[in-house]
């Protein structure tokens, strides 16, 4: 299983599109927004964070969410169609191991986004966090990608490779925008603000905002994310089984 994990991670890093969209894009957006809005003093609505730090978490979340979704969704759909998954099915590697590795790999592949955006924040925007805060943020944001990895697996198991790409992108942008990763939730209309409150993407970034603000994240963030992870995970496993075992 470890070998399979290594193979999955290695080949994803050779995919230039992956590296570009999950690392370069969040960093560029971070630098852009931080330079446009970061000059202003003061804090972002209610979080007590300055803009540069707030945006660091937003863009790290945006990149991590994207990495978790894209390394599962369209990729899984393509492997299902190409016969690669069937080839794995006739090796001693068990189907549950395949899907577990896929999910863990996509969580691991989300880490670099958090790290490069964090580095950009430290090097160019003079964001300061204690080692404990860095550690906490990275660890929580690693665990917090689980529901998105499960969502991507669900998409990849349900739809074909042609549809998987747009469906993944809709999930990606929908969750990012409504979750307040691009603009703070406070700027959204009231109805959408309520929706945002229950979205995993908002709670995911919330973990980061709490930690870098020096607080322990509220239990409700963890519970909402765990709830999404359990529901999406169960659906993903069901869909994956249906997609790979033929009647």
């Amino acid at each position: 299983m470890l070998r399979y994990l290594g193979v999955e991670i290695r080949r994803t890093f050779r995919d230039r599109r992956f590296v570009f969209f999950t690392m370069a894009v969040p960093v560029v957006f971070y630098l852009l927004w931080a330079n446009v809005f970061g000059k202003a003093d003061g804090t972002v609505g209610g979080t007590g964070l300055n803009t540069r730090t707030y945006l660091m978490v937003s863009m790290a979340s945006y990149g991590a969410l994207g990495a978790a979704l894209t390394t599962t969704g369209s990729r899984l759909a393509a492997e299902r169609q190409s016969g690669w998954l069937r080839q794995l099915q006739i090796t001693p590697l068990r189907p549950w191991a395949v899907i577990t590795v896929k999910i863990i790999a996509s969580m691991c592949l989300a880490l670099p986004s958090v790290i490069v955006v964090g580095l950009a924040a430290v090097l160019t925007q003079h964001v300061h966090l204690s080692p404990a805060e860095w550690g906490g943020m990275i660890a929580l944001m690693w665990l917090g990608t689980l529901p998105f990895a499960a969502l991507g697996t669900l998409v990849g198991s349900l739809v074909g490779p042609d549809a998987a790409q747009p469906v993944t992108l809709i999930c990606y942008f929908g969750l990012s925008i409504l979750g307040g990763l691009w603009m703070p939730v406070q700027t959204l209309p009231a109805t959408l603000r309520h929706v945002a409150h229950w979205l995993p993407s908002n709670r995911f970034a919330g973990l980061g905002w709490s930690v870098v603000g020096g607080h322990v994240p509220p239990a409700s963030d963890g519970l909402v994310l765990a709830g999404w992870a359990i529901v999406l995970g169960a659906l993903a496993i069901g869909a994956y089984r249906r997609a790979t075992v033929r009647g």
């Binding site: 193979v7 080949r11 190409s82 069937r86 006739i90 090796t91």
Partner: peptide, 16 residues
């Protein structure tokens, strides 16, 4: 691990 097979369809996995 007592069986190995070459199936009809199947492009190889990209990136390796």
């Amino acid at each position: 691990g007592r069986v190995g097979a070459m199936l009809q369809d199947g492009t190889l996995v990209p990136g390796l």
